[in-house]
Amino acid sequence: MSRLLVVHHSPTPRLRTISAAVLRGARTAESEGVEIIESAALDASAEDLLNADAVVFGTTANFGYISGALKHFFDTTFNETHAQTKGRPFSYWIHGSHDTTGAERAMQSITTGYGLRLAATPVVFTGDIDDEHLARAEEMGASVAWTLTI
């Protein structure tokens, strides 16, 4: 069975609607043998990443950067996992109040270091969360999960 890991920092109910949409989309592939594993960024481990065939990251944009929780995940898993994650499909979502530029650059740089392969268009936006954002997040989650069924 293939495994999709969804690692995110969603500290508020409003932000959890984004991660819920990603998971809803990803679960469309469960009937095709894809197991969905969800983990808060502060709880996810190197072992979780090593056991995943694909990954979706989610974060807030805080002070122009990814959340400290997701940065901690990257900091504590990189050395142990980056050689094994090369080529694995991934995507991400980033939500900010005003600006996501620094967070986007960080996500691109970090995931390049892991050697991950972008499998679906990231969902990156600022401001209010609306139905269109949630639909894009659901589609992104489904797209990454379905790469594991091919």
Rank of each mutant, 00 (worst) to 15 (best):
D43V: 12
T59N: 02
E80Q: 15
A52S: 12
S109Q: 15
I94N: 00
A21N: 04
G141K: 02
T147A: 01
F125Y: 13
G33N: 08
A52V: 06
H133C: 06
T111G: 02
K71G: 00
L134R: 09
T17I: 04
S143M: 05
I37F: 04
M107N: 08
D48I: 02
T147M: 09
S97N: 13
S143Q: 14
R88G: 01
Q84S: 15
S10D: 08
K86G: 11
V123T: 12
L15Q: 06
E132D: 15
A44F: 12
S91V: 08
M1E: 09
T121Y: 05
R105H: 14
S19M: 02
L23W: 01
I129F: 11
G87Y: 11
F125A: 13
Q108M: 11
T126E: 14
F57P: 03
P122I: 02
N79W: 12
G68Y: 06
Q84W: 11
F63H: 10
L42H: 07
E47Y: 00
V123L: 09
V55W: 04
M1T: 14
S39E: 15
S97M: 10
R117C: 04
T17V: 07
F73E: 08
D48M: 09
H82A: 13
D131Q: 14
A69P: 06
H133R: 11
I129T: 06
Y92L: 13
T81Q: 06
A142C: 09
R14T: 13
G115F: 12
A29S: 09
P13K: 14
T60F: 00
G141N: 04
E32G: 07
S91D: 10
Y65V: 00
D99M: 09
G102L: 05
M140Q: 08
T28P: 00
Q108K: 15
V56F: 04
E47V: 10
D75R: 08
K71V: 05
V123I: 13
W93R: 00
T149Y: 13
R16D: 09
I37L: 13
A106H: 10
F125P: 07
V55R: 03
T85G: 07
R16W: 03
Y92V: 05
T100H: 08
F125E: 10
L116Y: 07
V123P: 00
V123Q: 02
S109V: 03
A29F: 04
A44I: 12
V123W: 01
T149C: 10
V124E: 14
M140E: 07
A135R: 13
N62R: 15
D131V: 05
S143Y: 02
P89H: 07
L4D: 05
I36Q: 01
R27S: 10
I110P: 04
E138Q: 14
S31W: 08
